[in-house]
Write a protein that binds this DNA or RNA. Sequence first.
DNA 1: AGTTCAGTGATGCGT
DNA 2: ACGCATCGCTGAACT
Lengths: 212, 212
Amino acid sequence: MIKVVYPFILYAKCDVIYVGRASSTLVPGNYLIIHKNDGTIKIEGSELFTPLNYQPPGAMLIWDESKKQLISNRNDEQLIITLYDIFYYKELKHWSNNKIHITKTESELRDKIYEQLNTILGVSIKEAFKEFRTPVGSIDILAVDENEIYHIIEVKRGKPNISACGQLDRYCSYFDKIGQKNYGYIASPKITSNALKYINESSNRKYINVNY
Amino acid sequence: MIKVVYPFILYAKCDVIYVGRASSTLVPGNYLIIHKNDGTIKIEGSELFTPLNYQPPGAMLIWDESKKQLISNRNDEQLIITLYDIFYYKELKHWSNNKIHITKTESELRDKIYEQLNTILGVSIKEAFKEFRTPVGSIDILAVDENEIYHIIEVKRGKPNISACGQLDRYCSYFDKIGQKNYGYIASPKITSNALKYINESSNRKYINVNY
DNA sequence: AGTTCAGTGATGCGT
DNA sequence: ACGCATCGCTGAACT
């Protein structure tokens, strides 16, 4: 029973049992196993983005030589890999840990909208907030117009569906409940037809088409 | 310019540029690159479950020998990996493509609840449906009691938060709108404190604690 | 092709 | 630690 603390890749014939939040079994086959510095482990099949089995960061890996098993533990979750044949094994030395720098995120789109509120909403805005916190969640943009009406904008970078409308409803209902007059908006480059239909059924909801 | 159709792993010093839904850059470093049969490509750093950059299934990989670049294209998304130094390279032959068999899913929990509706709800159920479709989404369990009141149950396998309540609200509001008396329930092993508070503010919403 | 939702979601940010 | 929202989410099911 040896603790495995170094990162490696392993191509092997094996099977996998997982027990934790869910439970799963993977029949014997040739799979790629990756172990990272932070305990992350992934068993990859020949297709699909998602690994067949895995442990997220924080897992602890043990090698049981007698049983030819790799055992990864993390909280109440256990992954057992039984090895039958090793085709390729390599430790990865000097593996970098940089992060990507990403642009075109939702917060960028939100900031762009924030700068043009009067134009986009067609009303005179007195005061506006980003990530305005309410008991039911944070509102991307809350704009208060000269008549003290609140304009609640939920920004989405992709193609929001009806669940985004529910998110907006939740914020609007909160202000309804405390007697604050308001309008609700979804602002995005696209939207599903169902979501648009849903929005158009309410007189105090609107869709705003925006782009980067 | 050679089309790469075989799966491989590559440990190399490289940098990565991604342009598509978002845009990102990854500074030069030593990363693990995985290419699968279905076009999936992942650039893995030494930490975190999530790859630094990737392409999902369906991407097409090209090797540009003169520029030492791997270029993956998929719809309007492009990934460019520029190689500076190759440490390990291995083709993966006979890579298996089995799927895991998983248990303890939400649908199992839903089925278990479905079998005990009278006990769980404390009313006499006349008729019940799984995945009952409405214009605003599918209801996990819809149970009709002897008084023609609808009981709408949203099942969650994990720890639902306030957004699950919004999902429930959406279904209930639909029946409210068409004049159908109803009660709404979240059924799960756990729930966040805010979600529970939110539910308890409505007289016709209830939380049901259930376990596998 | 479009829409919706589950996921062992993971990850980051806030309190 | 808990709660919440985003994600280049992915993947699957259904229309």
